[in-house]
Nucleic acid binder design. Structure first.
Lengths: 202, 202
DNA sequence: GACAACATCTTGACGGCGTCAAGATTTCCG
DNA sequence: CGGAAATCTTGACGCCGTCAAGATGTTGTC
């Protein structure tokens, strides 16, 4: 798809999308600036007009991953406005589902591929917004007696740890074949979540 | 430190150790085969006599990370042979401590940097042995009523998820400064662990 | 409407990287 | 002792991230 004009028009977003596609097809190791540029139909150095270096592009791709997660969480909160247990489960599952559906994008977003994250304010902002959404869900669960009382940010760290850890273990294939024959991913996730709730979910 | 003879003698292990040192000083991004070779005092292609490619060296470094963790877990099990609660806490803490002490080595070992892990049997074996050690601790905890009954491998996945997730969040700086002022890492970890035990630990 | 400043993109170059092939050196074993 | 095998070096290849210089298009100003 060649472009008509010398200027691309929306190269920055095109590069981010190209990057996400390359991640899906070739994994984290296959992601290079030159391939991303090629896929967007520009020369190998064109990305430097929009990103200071490769890390900046990775940060943008990660930010987009966080943004997608955040949107889904907000949708779930709205959809189950009066059912905090459901909010908790579905948010946890959407996280694990992200990991299973787009492993490389998940890894680059949530598994510390990005270094010096402090230098990428947009990334920090999206990660904080997502965490705050989890805190809101935790507070709603506490109000209904689904989770024990206590500092909501602290409880949110526990919940977030459990879910992130589970997704990581699944991605790394550390969850044994034996176990997977006995129950589904979702059942295992709910089993784990039930360990930290006062009331059984689902 | 030049070597006397043409042959190195123990180049394979020297390369692994050189890799671990480079990880500590320059992080995951700074790890290259050529630098590892240089640090070991051999030419840039010498590693290929011992590793089929860079992934194989990374797998060996990861296996060594898992081996160190496994040894510490076994020590803890022996040291607290009649106190499963202590085994659980100390094993969890040694995992988080690894992440804090040697972040890059931890990431490369436990955060899915290695691809196609099935092709590296030594790595798979060490990861299974470590998981089985956790299963043993879980079973001991269940026998004492510290953890609820249920399939021990399933409960172990919950515990392992929580601990791995917590370590990852800490490494990525997702645990807020605000929270860290109120309590220590270890207190947060114990707080989370207490959520999944029947009896308070510590 | 001209033109200057600016943003965007191309071209070409550099060193570092993973990898491979060919050959040198040393060790091992019959 | 002598050849086979293991180990290491040298040199090359293409891909990579990055930078500098210049070409091209856009925008704002008088």
């Amino acid at each position: 798809m060649p472009r008509k004009s010398y200027h691309h028009g929306d190269l920055k977003n095109a590069l981010i999308q190209a990057g996400i596609q390359i991640l899906a097809k070739e994994g984290v190791a296959g992601l290079s600036l030159r391939k991303v540029a090629g896929k967007a139909g520009v020369s190998h150095a064109a990305p430097y007009a929009h990103f200071t270096d490769k890390q900046a592009l990775i940060a943008a791709i990660s930010t987009e991953g966080y943004r997608q997660l955040y949107e889904r969480i907000e949708d779930i909160i709205r959809q189950y406005a009066d059912d905090p247990s459901k909010q908790l489960i579905e948010t946890a599952w959407t996280y694990v589902d992200f990991a299973l559906t787009d492993p490389a994008h998940f890894k680059i977003t949530f598994s510390g591929v990005i270094e010096q994250e402090k230098e990428h304010p947009a990334f920090v902002e999206m990660s904080q917004k997502s965490f705050e959404a989890v805190v809101r869900i935790v507070e709603a669960c506490q109000a209904r007696g689904v989770l024990e009382a206590g500092p909501s940010d602290l409880v949110a760290v526990s919940v977030w740890s459990l879910v992130h850890g589970f997704a990581s273990l699944v991605l790394e294939g550390q969850v044994s074949h034996n176990l997977l024959e006995r129950m589904s991913m979702r059942e295992m996730l709910v089993f784990s979540l039930n360990k930290i709730t006062k009331v059984p979910l689902e």
